[in-house]
Simulated assay, not measured.
Amino acid sequence: MAEDAAPELACVILAHNDPEHVHRLIEALDPFPVYLHVDARASDDVFGAITADLPARVTVLPRRPTAWATWGAVEAEIEGYRAALADGGVTHIALVSGADYPTASIAEIRALLRDHRSDSFSVSSPLPYAQWGRSGGFDRLRYRHWAWGKRMLRLPVPRRLPRDVVFAGGPSSKILAVDHARAVVRTYDTHPELVRFWRRTWSSDETFVNSVLNTPRFVPGWQDHHVGDVFLWWIDWGGPRKKSPPWIDAEALPRLAARRWTSEQVIPWVFARKFSTAASTAVLDELDEMHGLRQEAVTSDAP
């Protein structure tokens, strides 16, 4: 495929704040189409700043509250997929946080997806998931949950799990082949009982889509077209795991520039998290230089 062919990747961005970084992220993703969701809890001023002067390749999605660990993030993800599928012209759709940034050139991303035209990149596995405590994550599903800030409220009365579902979990960040994204949207639309159930699960963005993808009746052949041993996001937890990773600053740049998490990371990272204008500008400038990102924006900003 020629370099100037139609973009192969659509990017669904879930943003909450930091308009300057969101604009920079969108510039770095040029020429990929972007489907932008802004948390409904953001102020009108922040929303206005994020959505001002966007290029024509950006579609602003209807706003929903997307508080941490709540169902709203899943709804925004699904609507992003729906919009990208309706526009067509892509082979893959990436779910990207507004605090992410590319760690590869556009040419490298295109080459990776050309090599995996029918494949999805999603680090998900059937429960029990060893990293999620003694229940392996099933307690996220068996009990009804609410989020209060970044605290979990759990009703300690177990409930029955839906039948014929392969419950799975993993990071919400992923790149899906369009056939898999279409299957996720179809399942969401045709199984309201699953939507009702998952609304009250904990961190549903880490289990709903992953469970749909791993259930053969929803996505036949998933295992044959799923690259599950490679996580394409570099996340530096900076020591013991916390609820959110720290901001990436200049001190983390050498580790990020190595572009491998372990010796088993056979495919270079495509994105990293998390960046902010305040903490990460110097690192972002280095990434732009290393990977040829935002060339037109940088040129237009030059004196």
Rank of each mutant, 00 (worst) to 15 (best):
D100H: 13
A99I: 13
A107H: 07
I26V: 00
G137S: 09
I78L: 09
L25I: 08
A69S: 08
T91N: 13
Y35C: 00
V123R: 01
I106M: 15
G137C: 08
A86N: 14
A83N: 06
T103C: 04
T103E: 03
S97K: 10
V34G: 08
I26Y: 00
S120Y: 03
R114N: 14
W68L: 05
S125I: 11
A73V: 06
V60K: 03
I13A: 04
E77D: 09
F32I: 10
P126M: 08
A40P: 12
D45N: 11
L95R: 12
E27C: 10
D4E: 15
D100S: 14
Q131Y: 04
A130H: 04
V60W: 04
E77L: 06
S97V: 11
R117W: 15
E75F: 09
V60G: 02
P7C: 05
P62C: 06
E27R: 11
G136P: 02
E3G: 10
E77V: 03
G72L: 09
H37P: 01
C11M: 03
A15G: 03
D18V: 14
W68M: 07
A83H: 04
L29Q: 09
L85S: 13
A111H: 05
V46L: 02
A67Q: 15
A52N: 10
Y35I: 00
V34I: 12
P65M: 05
L25N: 07
L113Q: 07
A107T: 08
A10S: 03
A49I: 05
P65E: 08
V22G: 00
G89Q: 12
Q131G: 04
L29D: 06
A111K: 05
P65R: 05
V58E: 04
A15H: 03
S125L: 14
V34L: 12
V12N: 01
D53R: 10
A111P: 04
A2C: 11
A76I: 05
Y81G: 01
A6W: 13
T59Y: 14
Q131R: 06
A130F: 03
L112Y: 03
P65N: 07
Y129A: 10
A130L: 06
Y81I: 02
G133F: 08
E77M: 06
E3N: 13
I13V: 08
P102E: 12
V58Q: 05
A67Y: 15
L113M: 09
S124K: 13
D30L: 07
D39T: 00
I106D: 11
S105V: 02
V38L: 11
I93N: 10
A5P: 13
R117C: 15
D53Y: 12
H37V: 03
A104Y: 03
L61H: 04
A52G: 10
A107R: 09
G48W: 12
S135W: 00
P65H: 06
P55H: 06
E3V: 13
T51D: 12
S43I: 11
G88I: 01
I106T: 14
P7D: 04
L112C: 09
I109L: 07
A94R: 14
G137H: 02
P62R: 04
T66R: 09
G137K: 03
Y81F: 05
A76N: 06
P33A: 00
S97Y: 11
V34H: 10
L113T: 06
Q131V: 01
R41Y: 11
I13T: 07
A56C: 15
R41T: 10
W132G: 02
D4H: 15
L61N: 02
G80K: 02
M1G: 15
E20S: 01
D115N: 09
M1F: 15
R24H: 00
P128W: 07
